[in-house]
Design a protein around this nucleic acid. Sequence first.
DNA 1: CAGTGGTCTAGACCACGTT
DNA 2: ACGTGGTCTAGACCACTGC
Lengths: 238, 238
Amino acid sequence: MSLYQQVAKKLRQRIEAGNYQPGEALPRQAELALEFNTSRVTIQKALDILFNDNLIIRKQGSGTYVSPTYSSALDIISSQYGGTTQLFAGKATVSTQVLHFEIRLPTDEESQKLHIESTIPVYDIYRLRKLDNNPYELTKSIMPLSVISNLTKEVAERSIFAFIQHDLGLEIGNAVRRISADKTKNDDIQYLDCETHDPILQVSQTVSLKDGRIFEYAQTRHRYDKGSIVVFNKVPMV
Amino acid sequence: MSLYQQVAKKLRQRIEAGNYQPGEALPRQAELALEFNTSRVTIQKALDILFNDNLIIRKQGSGTYVSPTYSSALDIISSQYGGTTQLFAGKATVSTQVLHFEIRLPTDEESQKLHIESTIPVYDIYRLRKLDNNPYELTKSIMPLSVISNLTKEVAERSIFAFIQHDLGLEIGNAVRRISADKTKNDDIQYLDCETHDPILQVSQTVSLKDGRIFEYAQTRHRYDKGSIVVFNKVPMV
DNA sequence: CAGTGGTCTAGACCACGTT
DNA sequence: ACGTGGTCTAGACCACTGC
């Protein structure tokens, strides 16, 4: 891990431990540079990370302060996730039921969403997720075989994200999500135990690897009473 | 505007103009440094911005490439908002109807959300927004007078965000949003013309200034068939 | 092994807030 | 006027890719 990342990690620990209180000023950059025996530029790169996570506020001409709203920031960071499975690790038992698993050619819409040729086959996976045996989300995923291979039904019952990272050795990158509300459909009633007129929280996501290749287009339907989505909007850099 | 921001702007224009195609490599950092007559570090800071906007992919040991999924990134950037009003500027007519406007003391929950003492009064504003005369969202906002002042019903009918930025001279910072689905309530039926069993897309947001002070806690209810929320998730920096 | 991006430094000057 | 963070440079070395 690079130097500025180590510095960021240590400063984060101090803030979380309450060494610096919300609203309080951190030591001057020059002082931090002395303490960590680095250049000021390295300190600044470390502060960039904390700033992006909304842990600190920077005021030119004044100082660097622990974000007054720091405590609310914690949830966000921890929800930066990697697949649904990790989120509840330790808190509850997540189980996955694979309702459908096949390899087929993509529709036109799908090949467009995945940025692939329509001749490249895709996995079509339909899963139901339960939390302590209570159903809470229904996910339909499409993944191109040109990017993801050797997927099996058994892997889909565990964590596909873990498989991609650990077994395929690929690095997961950014995701674009579209969130909307929808009316209940037949599958929602059948699998999510919804009532006829319950609302559904729907998320359509396109997930990429670090090299930019899209590896998943998925639609997830959540019970409206089981979970919401927390989002953090940064002010634009330009 | 600083040098690296100018460079970022120019490179962004080139990408948008198609001078560099999706998937294609940008010139080497050293070459860009020569062209813009800057140091390589400055080029890197410029690339940081484009990277954060998902316009480019960086591969150590290989090069810098226009993101293969670049085109999908455009929507996101343009949805980086500033209040609802700007979003549709030019495309449609947004009108706002102020249903309620008062100054009162906050409830315990509200003073907690806003991080203020319960003795500080707040604006309580309830607005209905229409797009070309079709209702699409209903917003209940709470703002502390310790941060925002001189607000009037007339301002609320225009754009509160514009008032804060231009008239009060305050800089808007980050926002935390919680998105969920909900059942229709009486107000939704009355003002949004919803049917009894239509789902509602609800957003609860806490918006801060650049100095970290929270200036708004708001709950917005959208008709499920009028709009969705697009979100961009970056991979964590540490 | 050559070429690329990533990290890091020491030092300089600028922009802004505070006093 | 002073102290703070913001920007910028030139040069060095490291880490990784791909031939």
